[in-house]
Design a protein around this nucleic acid. Sequence first.
DNA 1: AAGTGGTCTAGACCACAGA
DNA 2: CTGTGGTCTAGACCACTTG
Lengths: 233, 233
Amino acid sequence: MSERRRHSWMEIRDSIRGLILNATYGPGDKLPRDEELALRFGCARSTVHRAMRDLAQNGIVERRRKGGTTVRRDPVTRATLDIPITRLEVEQRGYRYRHRLIRQSVQDTPPAIMANFGFSEPRAMLRVEALHLADNRPYIFEDRWISLETVPEITSVDLTHENANEWLVRNRPYSKCDLRLYARTATAGDRDMLQAQEGEALFVMERTTWIDAAPITSLCAVAHPGYQLFTQG
Amino acid sequence: MSERRRHSWMEIRDSIRGLILNATYGPGDKLPRDEELALRFGCARSTVHRAMRDLAQNGIVERRRKGGTTVRRDPVTRATLDIPITRLEVEQRGYRYRHRLIRQSVQDTPPAIMANFGFSEPRAMLRVEALHLADNRPYIFEDRWISLETVPEITSVDLTHENANEWLVRNRPYSKCDLRLYARTATAGDRDMLQAQEGEALFVMERTTWIDAAPITSLCAVAHPGYQLFTQG
DNA sequence: AAGTGGTCTAGACCACAGA
DNA sequence: CTGTGGTCTAGACCACTTG
């Protein structure tokens, strides 16, 4: 007897989540130590740990050394967005991709970009304005700033052929990425660039990346009217 | 001698990423087996596994049993969005939160909602239209459909006091969440509901959740003009 | 059928943050 | 200082998937 079932970390996770859902442990409550739970569930501590890591990652609990594990007071809906390289996004929709370099120059960062990076002083960066096209129709316009200190090689890349988006993604990993999404009304400039009617609603994605503490790039990408951003199941 | 350093999974991860970045392994290439890498790095296989799991989670590599580990051909920018309970979002910005139930009724799902859930036939669901306010000014308007089969208790909740958003997040976990974000031009209806000027750009979030295969809720949330969605650290 | 990643265990030590 | 989560190891077995 004493048939010892083997517990999977997902079962353990669901059990713990069950305890939270049936209000055994409410928001802000402290859960038992991993070791204690391992004893109760009859599994190894590392299995409880695996389960807890998942719960923490999904915003259900918070863990701190010495502080233990607590049920989050403020539940969140957590979603992972995959933002592909624009060329692939266009091609996957069955369109022919093209890319046009609009402008490229070294300039001092304006306040908005300084704020994105957390600079207190302007710095010289490479500014690249480019348009992505799908079947020759504007798809996304991007206004990008690239750090010359972190990415010096960028000056020797021909950005008329290889676009900055792709070059950076393929050649520069990032360890931190800030994202900001909002809607903006189309201006006269958008009308020309994106073939948007003035006053139309445009979807804007601002993205800033670092490798460790070193700034890589900050960009503002404005999509064509009707653009949608999805999560992929 | 033969001082055996102890390798952390992050070091291993960075080493493997380094191999990918310096083009030792290019897009689509197959990496050595975990066991082989463990030997090379002089660590346990589980440490390599931990590193690989991180790389896979960040979209750098893809892993398949028997198929091994390959470098992703199409790198992505992966970002995690935390969408908090609206009340907390409002309160964190220092405003007073209020909530107004606009309408509540049982209706058959329209085609758009059927598509979100993947239904082929309409079903009767609870439709709840509600407005979230910050300092008495419209913040987010939500039009929500709730499954009566998966969440029968919802009919006995007084949604004038407790809002559906919060009740569901607190009482119904979800295992799958689809998200769609886009921009929309304000209509005459929005002008009244959100105090938006007609033609202004509005940010829209559509969210559909399931617990396992069972539908929970699908909603369309339209934010007040100027709303932004961020990633957090 | 066999190869490869995924998981589980038991135990040890580490590192961070409260008291 | 001490308690708690985080990591690492070595080894075993499982489960998926491809040939």
